[in-house]
Design a binder for these strands. Structure first.
Lengths: 238, 238
DNA sequence: CGCACCTTTGAAAGGTTTCAACTTCTGTGG
DNA sequence: CCACAGAAGTTGAAACCTTTCAAAGGTGCG
C-alpha cells in the first residue's frame, strides 16, 4: 500500500521534472498523462532497450533509475549515462533511429512510451531541452573520465545527480536517494569497485558526504562544486 | 597556388561527406554551395565557438581539423570530440542554443555558416544523421576513456577517425592525414603526452601502424578493429 | 537460518604520471 | 641556403594512483 502510494508520487516527480525543462501547456500535460497511464514496469537488471534496436517513439522514465551501457567484448562494462525519473530515452530527429546503447534498469522502474514528436509544440520544446541537457551530461562524463582522478569523479558525478534530482524535487536537505551499488558506480566512473569503496571511505572521513544505505547527503555542495570548478549549466540563449 | 587548389579540393571532400550521410537534392546542394561561398578562415588555435556562446545557426567545417574542448579550473584540458572536414557544429532543436563546449581549430580551418534548419528537407535529414553520428561518437569516447587502456584507446580512436575520414574520401590505401600532435592526442585520450609517445612507439614496433609526419597508416585495420570489438555503426532503421 | 549480494580489508603488482633533460623537426630571417 | 628559435618528439627513473586477487564481514529477504 505504501509502496503503491510512493510510486504514484514518483511519477508525479518525473512529470514535474519534465515540465521544469520547458513550460508545458494543458495540451502537453494531457498527452503526458495519457502516456503515463500506459506505463509498464520492469524489474531491476532488465533491458529497456537493446543496442541497435529501432525506437519508434521516445520512452519516458517515470520511476526508478536506469543506465545506458556499452559492453566490450571481454565483458568490461561502461555506464555511459545514468537515467533518473523524468529522463527521456531515445530522442532523435531521424525517422527510425537505432539506439546507440543498451539501456538497463538499475532498480525496478516504470516506463511509458512518450507522445511522438510533433504532437505538441510545448512538449517538443521540453524534448529539445531534455536532449540538450543529455548532451551536456555526456560532455561532462567525458571530462570526468578523461581528466579527473577517482575522488573528483565521484564527487562530480554525485553533484551532477543531485542537481538533476533537484529538478524533480527529489532532494531534501541536501539528501537524496541513490539506489546504486558501488559496483554500478564504478562502471559509471571507469574505476574498480574496490577503489570506489576506498575513495568513498575517504570522502566520508573528510566529511564531504554521508552515505547510508541508499541515501546520500552531500555536506557542503557549494564548496565541493567550487572545488571542482562546476558552474551552472546554461543550455539556451537569454 | 598549389595551396589554394588543395583547399578547394578539401572543401569538396567536406561536402561530399555531408552528402554521404543522406542523399542531398539539388536544392540542398545549392544551399550548401552558397553557404560555402561565405566561408571564412581561422588560424590554428583560434576559437571557432566559445563555451556558452549562443549559436544562431550551425557551422560547417569545410577544411582542417577542430576540437570540442572542456578545460578544468587548474588547466587540465579534455578534448571531448575531434572535428574533421564535413562535420557540423552546434546542431540543436532549440531556438537559441548555447554551445556546451569551446571549439578550437587544431589546424588552419575553413568554416561556413550552415543553412538554417527547415530550409531544405534533404539537408535537415543530413543534419539529423550527422547529429546521430556525433552522439554515437560521444558514447564511444566515453567507453574509450572509461574502460580501455592506453594502447586500446589510441588504436580505437585512430580507427574511428579513419572510418570518418573514409566517408569524406580522405583515406587512400589505409593511409590518411592526422594533423595532430601527440599532445593533442593525449588531450583526446585522457593521457599524458609522454605516455602517448611510448604507446605509439609500442604500436609501431608491433607493426600495428606507421606514423610519419602528419600521415598515418593502419596496417591491418580489420584485425585491429576485431581485436577491439568494433562493429559498424548503424544509426538508423532498415 | 541461510543464501545471495554487497561492502570492506590487505598486500602486491601494474599502468600511468611526473619531472627533467635531450634530440629531432619545422619554419622563418639573415 | 644556412642558422636559429620554438615546437614537437624521445628517453630514463622514480613516484603515484589504481587495479588485481583473495578473503572476511555485513545485510536483507525468502
Amino acid at each position: 500500500m505504501i509502496k503503491a502510494r510512493r510510486s504514484i508520487d514518483d511519477r508525479t516527480a518525473a512529470l514535474a521534472r519534465l515540465s521544469t525543462l520547458a513550460p508545458l501547456d494543458a495540451d502537453a500535460r494531457g498527452l503526458l498523462e495519457a502516456a503515463a497511464r500506459g506505463a509498464y514496469a520492469l524489474r531491476s537488471r532488465q533491458e529497456l532497450v537493446s543496442l541497435g534496436e529501432v525506437m519508434e517513439a521516445p520512452l519516458i522514465l517515470l520511476d526508478g533509475w536506469a543506465a545506458r551501457i556499452r559492453v566490450l567484448v571481454d565483458g568490461r562494462r561502461q555506464i555511459v549515462s545514468l537515467l533518473v525519473p523524468g529522463d527521456v530515452i531515445g530522442l532523435s530527429d531521424l525517422p527510425d533511429p537505432r539506439s546507440s546503447a543498451t539501456i538497463i534498469a538499475l532498480t525496478p522502474v516504470h516506463v511509458c512510451v512518450g507522445p511522438p514528436r510533433g504532437a505538441s509544440a510545448s512538449l517538443d520544446r521540453a524534448y529539445a531541452v531534455s536532449r540538450a541537457y543529455d548532451e551536456a551530461f555526456l560532455l561532462a562524463q567525458i571530462t570526468r573520465l578523461g581528466r579527473m582522478n577517482a575522488q573528483e569523479r565521484i564527487m562530480d558525478l554525485l553533484l551532477e545527480l543531485s542537481e538533476r534530482l533537484e529538478l524533480a524535487g527529489l532532494v531534501q536537505h541536501k539528501t537524496f536517494d541513490v539506489p546504486l551499488t558501488q559496483e554500478t558506480l564504478s562502471d559509471a566512473l571507469g574505476l574498480t569497485p574496490v577503489h570506489v569503496n576506498r575513495m568513498l571511505q575517504a570522502a566520508r572521513k573528510a566529511d564531504d558526504l554521508v552515505w547510508t544505505g541508499k541515501r546520500i547527503t552531500i555536506n557542503d555542495p557549494l564548496r565541493s562544486a567550487r572545488e571542482l570548478g562546476r558552474v551552472p549549466l546554461r543550455i539556451q540563449g537569454e
